[in-house]
């Protein structure tokens, strides 16, 4: 691909990859509208360059990085991850990036850094959906420090070998494949290291439906639908039953992060 990333087989699913056309035209990115095809229609107004990400908070080395610095911060890898949307559908996407931990190590968090907060761009001029009352803007997401340090958490700069399409969160986003898709903040402009668990956009909007953790979990239903099964976009059609959803979306490596936690309570 254009980004010259090398496949990392130890972090790549063997599932059949979703067609690029589907992955780039069926999106939830409310900054560009709430319809699934809105982002693909509207995101051309986003300017992914020039772009900077400021990294601040409980760290010894606050930094502002531009896109070229981000692209060179660590060797780019291709990783094929399953993506499970909280709405009950899934895709398989070859992302390009590197472990978020590479970035975290560079900024040297202090002992006070317990959580990482991701803040997305919220510019009405570029994003026609900002201003809608669906969520409070900017979009915010977060991870516990140990989750953020887990090698699966991917700082993502591309997909399908090329840079991210605007509608998929250009130019830089997070991908946490063991969590529902909305945890993976898009078009990030700020990363903050904080002491307290950060408020997140969806949790604020509907606390009973979207928890801070939001790990993929077939045993914890969404209040309005079951999470026990899912439909793989482009594969599961009319003639098949939905496929079973796997605990942590099949990424059991992360299970130790939640040892001893009641995942029904901390959903």
């Amino acid at each position: 691909g254009k980004l010259g990333a090398k496949l990392n087989p130890s972090y790549s699913a063997l599932d059949k990859q979703t067609a690029f056309k589907d992955a780039s035209t069926y999106n939830n990115f409310y900054e560009f509208g709430t319809g699934k095809d809105d982002p693909a229609h509207n995101a051309h107004t986003l300017k992914p360059r020039p772009w900077t990400v400021s990294i601040e908070g409980e760290i010894k080395k606050p930094l502002t990085l531009d896109l070229d610095q981000l692209l060179k911060l660590a060797p780019l890898e291709e990783r094929v991850y399953r993506l499970r949307c909280v709405e009950g559908w899934s895709m398989v996407i070859p992302w390009v990036g590197y472990s978020l931990s590479e970035l975290i190590k560079k900024v040297e968090p202090t002992g006070n850094a317990k959580y990482v907060e991701f803040i997305s761009l919220a510019d009405k001029a570029q994003m026609p959906g900002v201003g809608s009352r669906v969520l409070t803007w900017p979009y915010r997401e977060g991870l516990r420090m140990d989750e953020a340090m887990h090698p699966l958490a991917l700082l993502t700069l591309g997909m399908y070998g090329d840079v991210l399409p605007n509608q998929n969160g250009a130019p830089v986003r997070i991908v946490t494949p063991w969590k529902y898709g909305f945890k993976s903040a898009k078009s990030i402009v700020k990363i903050r290291f904080v002491k307290e668990q950060p408020r997140t956009a969806w949790n604020e909007a509907a606390p009973s439906e979207y928890g801070f953790y939001s790990n993929v979990n077939p045993d914890v239903d969404h209040p309005r639908w079951s999470q026990a099964s899912e439909r793989r976009i482009g594969e599961d059609g009319f003639l098949v039953r939905k496929r079973k959803t796997l605990m942590f979306n099949g990424y059991n490596d992360v299970a130790p992060l939640y040892a001893g936690m009641d995942l029904k309570k901390f959903f």
Binding site: D22, T25, Y26, K36, W89, R231, I233, G234, G237, F238
Partner: peptide, 12 residues
């Protein structure tokens, strides 16, 4: 729309 394959997620 379904038969011509224009829908990414026809069921929904």
């Amino acid at each position: 729309l379904t038969a011509s394959g224009q829908l990414v997620e026809p069921l929904q």
